[in-house]
Write a protein that binds this DNA or RNA. Structure first.
Lengths: 235, 235
DNA sequence: CTCCATTAATCCAATAATGATCCAATTGGT
DNA sequence: ACCAATTGGATCATTATTGGATTAATGGAG
């Protein structure tokens, strides 16, 4: 039960702060030995109470990522935790370690061609599903909900190519997009204006699939993914 | 994915919501340990009352797919999804079950474009390795030995694209080379005449990579793979 | 009509987060 | 040596959040 609580706690709200600080340590913003801002400053920066902030710092201290001294401050440990010691799993751990740039490059290889195939193979049910994803995405009230239906649409397009192996591979790669580090990228890059652009590009792809126009579908999806990559990495 | 028909259908029942959430868990949108949105948020997202939403969550809880805690939230069970070996293992196992047609289709999507990238990124060591694969393949005394160096060449080309994720995915797909059923297909399709054709096509790809001619490399590799597919699957 | 699922409106209980206050160790200047 | 300011450490009452549960109203399908 304790293990379960720990696991759930790790995903809970308070440690959103933990993830933020971990990110800042990982990307070098706060290198080893750096003195963190004071608790009273961090609580304002992260918009949480000092109590919650301290709970997060406690987690980081127990993980050995920071050390704290009364009257002096908190500091990033000189021994930056190398990695998660992922137990040497096969493909999953390596996939999870893939960079956004690599992922987008793979998607750019596969998805446009999958769309071209889908133009000739999509069933009425496939097209119906895509339409629903479109409307749901457009009605989405917040970014996470939009992301959800955005992802579903891409899955639907891949699925319409009627290649089970392709779908499986895509699913595996797609799982990475839920990694906290990747999520941060998306949130930062998804402005309302860009979301509108995405919706328009999505619709063009689906229209092309409706028209059974493979070339158009491939081109539209490629354009969309190039846009996404630029927003994600280029900004 | 008929579960998506909850909008217009009067069948927007609890079971539909169950299927939707199951889908989101299965495709990795909500990975193990993830805290899913609050009930009051989900009821709006799925356009159902909190009562039916809770009934759905109850089903998922009884299935062990989620756990719920008052005051904290609901979480995806850590042992519900793929878990341990994760997508890697499941991907590998499903790849083994994939049909040769599906595999060749995937290779045709990925490899030519990888060759195009490799033309711009291959190091001298990469090209050297390809040359060695070529010579070894040409000197091969029997079919299995030729197959070995043939496979190594393709791996080398993929590797020269300098996309670790792509290499990992390709390795997983390539693992099927050891499957008995697939081996039988190859042996049956690989006549001495065809082997000579393959060697010529291989050399054209490598020459193009030497010349840093991406278009030529992509075209040559695509032609080769089309030939292989035709020999494998066609009449 | 009845039956059944859904909806809507409350209230409850467990947990998380907050805000305030005080304590203890360290630092830097006098 | 001393003192004031700074900084992390700790506790407590209060508020907000979140799943749990009940009840009455609504609305088709048979």
């Amino acid at each position: 039960m304790d293990a379960l609580n720990l696991r759930d706690r790790a995903a809970s709200g308070a440690s959103a702060v933990v993830a933020l600080i971990e990110q800042s340590i990982a990307d070098g913003t706060w290198g080893p030995g750096t003195k963190l801002p004071t608790e009273r400053e961090l609580e304002q920066r992260f918009k949480v109470s000092r109590n919650t902030l301290r709970k997060s710092l406690r987690v980081l201290e127990e993980q050995g990522k920071i050390v704290r001294h009364v009257g002096r401050g908190s500091f990033v440990s000189s021994e930056a935790a190398p990695k998660d010691t992922g137990a040497g799993q096969s493909l999953t751990s390596r996939i999870i370690g893939a960079s956004p740039a690599e992922i987008m490059e793979l998607r750019l290889m596969v998805e446009p061609q999958a769309a071209e195939l889908a133009a000739g193979r999509a069933t009425a049910a496939d097209l119906q599903r895509m339409e629903e994803c479109l409307t749901h995405a457009e009605r989405a009230q917040d970014i996470p909900e939009f992301e959800h239906w955005d992802g579903m649409l891409h899955v639907a397009i891949i699925g319409a190519a009627k290649n089970g192996l392709l779908s499986d591979v895509y699913d595996a790669v797609n799982a990475i997009r839920n990694q906290p580090e990747w999520a941060r990228l998306k949130v930062r890059s998804l402005t309302p204006a860009r979301r509108a652009v995405y919706e328009e590009q999505h619709r063009r792809v689906v229209v092309a699939l409706h028209d059974r126009d493979g070339d158009q579908a491939r081109a539209a999806l490629q354009e969309h993914l190039l846009q996404v990559r630029a927003n994600l990495l280029g900004s």
